[in-house]
Design a protein around this nucleic acid. Structure first.
Lengths: 211, 211, 211, 211
DNA sequence: GATGAATGAGCGTTCATTCAT
DNA sequence: AATGAATGAACGCTCATTCAT
């Protein structure tokens, strides 16, 4: 009666299981994100992630082979989302300045809402150590891709006169990236001293002094 | 009669031992700086610091009461140097813009030479955890002092027209601090893509768009 | 529908695990008692307890949060047993002398069988340090309770003429407590030179010289 | 002038040095006694002994080969004193009861003045562990010698009718030894609830119920 | 002889990972 | 699949002992 598993349609069964599996993985990632943000990579224990997710410690290992794999999966998921966001915003048919401002606004809004989750640069705020980063050079590809998107935007701005062509684009890119993985900005935002829109506006102006 | 019998100066003896002591402490700090920079606070073991310094583990504890005291001593030493540097540069009788440029140049030169050691804000790059920082609220005083110096510079620039008074000074301070505890800039500098002077010049210009 | 699917009793499962858990804890306590008795608190290492129990060091910490908690748990377990024993014996409807003799007999029988485990007074034989004892003033309550029980017995004996009312009761209590946390008596017993019954009889007689 | 050491009379020189040496050793023993009494053997560090004696740590090792040798020397010194004291008191031409009372009075007076220093039985109060004691079986000889002295006294009392001959002498010896390495008695004395003379009197009476 | 800096074995404790159930 | 008890390597720190000065 209860052992009929092999004969009935395996597909729905499978996909149900698979869906459940994915939900579990997503839950773990979500909880992991929170705990990593709060405590940093090293001080976060698998125990705490499991406890907050309401599952057993061993279950985490059914989905992620190690703590390192877990943080890498999290990084990839978030970076992919971030890349999509950049691509979408940069693809809008707006003047370059407005697209930049949109991007900053978006990032800062999220930071104010839930702390910095952008993880650009394998966000050092997470306490990711150089040694871990060195173990996964493949992850640099994401960073590169983001840099290229931003580079393209900068170049575009320099060709059409919106940006000063005398500043090397790599400096502009670096400045922008710095604005996106912010240290001191975060404090301004989370302390409520300034709104994301205001901050985005002011910083955008420093990119477009003449506008 | 029986106490000053040797007639030779007892001071050199003392100062020799003391000098050796200080050299040891300096060596430990130097090695600790390196390892903390490479691996972050938590992943750095006293064992490794001792091994790299060529001394025994116990010897570290003759100079620093705990790992925490070690990192705090390191932070204080570096921050004091940094504050002196800021004070000296900001006190020069130069237009505000040149003093700013000088400060950036100085910081970037050091970063290029030896990696970021400025540690502004209990540099999260070291992986210093919130819990550690909360245990030593006294250290926040250093940060405050630096912020005030920078704040003063910004205000001065806004009053004499060198800086745009319409941007809130706290945003300008945050931008400047961000430039001083640099994420992406570091890569540009250590990879040799740009010189400190160039970078300082370009970034300064973003503060003074009209000059 | 989906939760009680297995139809078999979930309780046995639970209680099985719980039983195993308790057995482990009991095993650890038992081994700890032995090692503490042999070496004293400070010289006993968790490593040795684990090794003798045939488990890993970490496993000890699944049951007791720290070495201190372990010794406290051991103390409480034994003192509770001891208090129950005193209360039961003192509650018997026998002449005071016989109850006293019964108590001594009981204690000495246990000492002969397994060494002194009474731990009265946070037994200094364990090498429990003053600093540890000071950290847990709550444990003094056990001692107080035992002293009060014994005090009551002595007072009773003095009122009904079984004991000499001219000796201050505190001296009698101290003498009796000394008999219960015995130094030299232990040697007599464990060396087999005397039986518990004989020792109890003789000592009882020194309390009741006229009977 | 100051290098005439080899030609002049070496004897006084030697004995001076020797006397100084012995004074140093005595000082160390004295301080060690204090610290061991306060903290127990294991929690006492050579560092603290040296510091309290006002000498360098290494100097302790010029006089005692190890921490264990130090505590053994201390034990021997004190036990020898104690044996002398027993011998002297027991040799007095007094009725046995008064000699016993004298002995108890003497021991309790010292306990009240400075805590228990008798160290009988390698006093477990010092936290001396069985393992240490087992390493030095030779020390048992002191204990044996004291037991024999006390045994003689007891036998004498039993032959001349002062003590009940029906109680085996070993029980009486054990009781007496228990009184001399006192646990609960110490509290009575140091808290001032009773004087040494009173305590000695009451306990003596329990040995001589009919007097 | 005296010093005290240096040593390094050893301890209590944590936690990523494994595995029997 | 899910559990969570068990594991054991690794860490921060202590302190008896040694040894260059």
């Amino acid at each position: 009666m209860d052992q009929q598993s092999t004969s009935s349609p395996p597909l729905p069964m499978r996909s149900l299981r698979e869906r459940q599996r994915e939900e579990r993985a997503a839950l773990i990632l979500e909880v992991a994100q929170q705990v990593f943000s709060e405590k940093g990579y090293i001080e976060t224990s698998i125990d705490e992630i499991a406890a907050r997710a309401g599952i057993a410690k061993g279950t985490v290992y059914l989905h992620f082979a190690s703590k390192e794999e877990l943080v890498v999966a999290l990084f990839e998921q978030q970076f992919k989302q971030f890349l999509q966001q950049i691509e979408q915003i940069l693809g809008e048919s707006l003047p370059m300045r407005l697209r930049l401002e949109h991007l900053l606004l978006d990032v800062y809004t999220r930071i104010q809402a839930q702390g910095n989750q952008v993880l650009i640069d394998l966000n050092p705020r997470l306490g990711l150590t150089t040694s871990l980063i060195n173990k996964r050079p493949d992850l640099a590809a994401y960073s590169t891709q983001a840099m290229e998107l931003i580079s393209g935007l900068i170049s575009e701005g320099q060709s059409n006169g919106e940006l000063d062509p005398n500043v090397p684009s790599m400096v502009m890119v670096a400045s922008l990236v710095n604005m996106l993985s912010p240290n001191s900005y975060e404090r301004l935002l989370t302390s409520g001293q300034i709104t994301p829109a205001e901050l985005a506006g002011y910083l955008s102006r420093s990119f477009f002094p003449n506008l």
